[in-house]
Design a protein around this nucleic acid. Structure first.
Lengths: 163, 163
DNA sequence: CTTAACTGATTGCGATTTGCAACTGGTTGT
DNA sequence: ACAACCAGTTGCAAATCGCAATCAGTTAAG
């Protein structure tokens, strides 16, 4: 599908995989919004992705090994998308992008909360959150207890989703 | 040019500005390769950007306040592009992308050196390098002495540019 | 059993963006 | 005078994007 490679630079190679306007938003929704089904990603996204683009990006992310797909036992058509370790490790990239956008762009108040929490938490919080993602997406057992970082980061959703 | 905005999410807003295949590569070359002129960015890039795309992206980055342009006193046609503080602060984003690409993608040996040095140096080295960029791009005075991070990161160039 | 709603997509099509090559108008060095 | 260099611009074909409609299979309700 995309075998051409412009250079062996790590930044370039990363951009060739996730350097478009949608891929990282899908990953963001899987991470922070816990969207795991096609419909969830399609309808519950802030930006309104269209279904053909979503299908195409999911395919690309699958091929790249950033997500996996398995059948939902409760519904023969539903698929459950999960982040791989490789996908989970995109969190620092998203966190830095969020921090930069929060500082320099006209971020809406509600959606800025998450960026602020991520920045204040720092790399230590990121690591904790990535551990939580390993539980929910890779099925690893959980060691820590108390409120998860994911729950704290989702606090803003109660403000946003007043539908 | 681009007044539509899909959402106020900081990640989305960041992607709307630099979420394409070329913008961050241009910034990378300005940061690590010290390319400051149009021709330098055009011809000395690993990936071979075409002139119309380069002109368009430079315009976008100017509008976004990520770079500035001023006339080169030594040549009436030459322009010197510089990173703004906002542009310099994209370094952590690039560093995280480099780290991710270095770990998961088929990075070439020579070009991986920079990613490895950046990862080993960590946020402290990034801050030091950003201070150096503030000197060369914003004209700030330099306090520290000794070999710069930029020089160390350019070490690999002697390997690559054997033309 | 019928039917409506829901599932993950796919298709058609116009609009936009990309990428290549050639070219423009001006400046500099010999 | 002339060739090389400078920062872009233009034309055009190909690829991608984004919207709306559609599809075929699945589930739940009546």
């Amino acid at each position: 599908m995309a075998d051409d490679q412009r250079s062996g630079c790590p930044i370039n190679l990363t951009l060739e995989v996730v350097g478009d306007k949608w891929s990282l938003l899908i990953i963001r929704d899987m991470m922070f919004g816990n969207r795991r089904h096609f419909r969830e990603l399609l309808t519950k996204s802030e930006e309104g992705i269209s279904s053909n683009i979503l299908a195409d990006r999911l395919k690309t992310l699958l091929d790249a090994g950033i997500i996996t797909r398995e059948d939902d036992p409760s519904h023969k058509q539903k698929g459950i998308y999960s982040l791989t370790e490789q996908g989970i490790e995109l969190l620092p990239v998203l966190a830095q992008m969020a921090a930069w956008g929060y500082q320099y762009l006209p971020v809406s108040e509600e959606l800025g909360i998450r960026a602020r929490l991520l920045r204040e938490g720092g790399p230590k919080m990121w690591a904790e959150f990535m551990d939580e993602l390993r539980e929910t997406h890779l099925g690893q057992v959980r060691r820590r207890k108390g409120p998860t970082v994911g729950e704290r980061l989702q606090a803003y959703e109660s403000v946003v989703n007043r539908t």
